[in-house]
Amino acid sequence: MKKITLSALFLILATAFILPVIATIATSFYGERNFTLQNYTDLLFDAFAFYPAFWNSLLYAGVIVIVQLFVVIPCAFGFANASFKGKGILFIFYIILMMMPLQVTILPNFIGLRDLGLIDTRLAVILPAIFSPFGVVVINQYMQGMNNSIIEAARLETNSIIKIIFHTVIPQVKICIFAVAVFIFAESWNMLEQPMLFLRSTNLQNLSVFISESGSYAGNILFPASVFFFIPVLILYSFFNNYLEKGLTFGELAK
């Protein structure tokens, strides 16, 4: 009995959380007091800026995630396994950098990018995001709990550190890496201020910017655009979900 009420409560909680999402989807079909596809046609056929924005978002998020993983995984591994003076302080410094609110850093960031001549290019948005300290901090977190014996064993077999990482480390923290990847993807996907301020040309803007300016297009396209906004990440996440499900067979034993 208790289980059922608890489960019911949980379901209610889940519904409460998803309500705004459903509201967004519902409103996207709403116009003139009844169900209509008008908003979608306004978006897909009249608001031409939508498509480049969509692909740009995909491009930025995709590139950022992939390159960041290549940068971050070795770095986190290094943090976990190397020892040198000041490592702790360096790590704390990383966390501090992570903390800086965007409003403050965006201006000096802009000046820096301008000095490098990157303003109004795609790199202005991609490069700073790649080196975000977030990935390092989080994955390092997960790497702490790694099984070192496997690594030791691998070291005896080969000298190539890359191979070691690839074969021994990644499998262990695969899920965590994937979780972080999804998160980074979502963050990059949601990026708003940086594209707005670092990119001047309309054809380089991403979907978040498009949505924030959706008022200036004809028709009510805010909600359909929002729906298209979260679909790709949802799809990505559903892959992760299935993957995660598979890895949770052990969890069943915990009941």
């Binding site: 959380f17 998803i18 705004p20 999402v21 967004t24 409103t27 979502a186 996907w189 949601n190 708003l192 978040s208 949505i211 924030s212 959706s214 805010l222 909600f223 655009a225 929002s226 906004f229 979260f230 990440v233 949802l234």
Partner: peptide, 10 residues
């Protein structure tokens, strides 16, 4: 999902 919805619509 909540973290993926753009702020404007929310």
């Amino acid at each position: 999902l909540p973290m993926l919805i753009p702020t404007a619509s929310v």
